[in-house]
């Protein structure tokens, strides 16, 4: 859904426009973003201002596509679905579990009584608490799969993003 459409619907429905504007802004690139695009999803990551969190935004490029919850088991439910993952190594060290800012919704699968924890269609941002070494390089491994009710794009598993110390510094601003 386009931002303008979101704003129009928000205005019509009485939802505060500023709230909708905030939603729309979440899909905009951050000046310090580093990332890639693969299998229909743009991945952009940067460090929080205090350098304590790695924020990664996953944006499906086609409407109607969602990502699976970071809480989904690695092998999915009954073998179905693939979780969203962000893992770090090297100069980035994880201090806690990966979380997501978006609410999880349970998506029922056609023809069954099974439901899957997915994020709302569109962009979702995950947050990983990290420690950053001032020296050295880091590697971030990104995994996800984007699906709509009608189709799934190929999963991306452990896509590496190599970050030099200068890149890490730039990501923090």
């Amino acid at each position: 859904m386009k931002s303008s459409t979101v704003l129009t619907l928000a205005a019509i429905s009485g939802v505060p426009v500023l709230t909708a504007l905030g939603f729309a802004l979440t899909v905009h690139p951050h000046a310090r973003d580093v990332g890639f695009s693969e299998q229909g999803v743009t991945v952009a990551m940067h460090l929080s201002d205090d350098g304590k969190h790695l924020l990664t935004t996953f944006t499906p490029q086609r409407p109607g596509f969602h990502l699976y919850s970071v809480g989904l088991p690695a092998d999915g439910i009954q073998g179905l679905g693939r979780p969203t993952r962000v893992e770090v190594a090297g100069a980035l060290r994880s201090r806690g579990p990966l979380t997501a800012e978006a609410p999880v919704r349970m998506l029922p699968m056609q023809g069954t009584d099974v439901a899957f924890p997915v994020y709302p269609d569109g962009a979702v941002t995950t947050e990983l608490p990290v420690d950053v070494d001032s020296q050295g390089t880091a590697k971030v491994l990104v995994s996800y799969a984007a699906c709509s009710p009608q189709e799934c794009l190929m999963p991306v598993t452990g896509h590496p993003v190599d970050l030099t110390s200068s890149t890490l510094s730039a990501m923090r601003g």
């Binding site: 970071v70 088991p73 999915g76 439910i77 579990p97 979380t99 609410p103 999880v104 919704r105």
Partner: peptide, 15 residues
């Protein structure tokens, strides 16, 4: 693998 065990919420946690 198990059927739905992950409750909806505002935040979820990775294994």
């Amino acid at each position: 693998p198990v059927p739905v065990l992950i409750p909806s919420g505002t935040t979820d946690v990775a294994p």
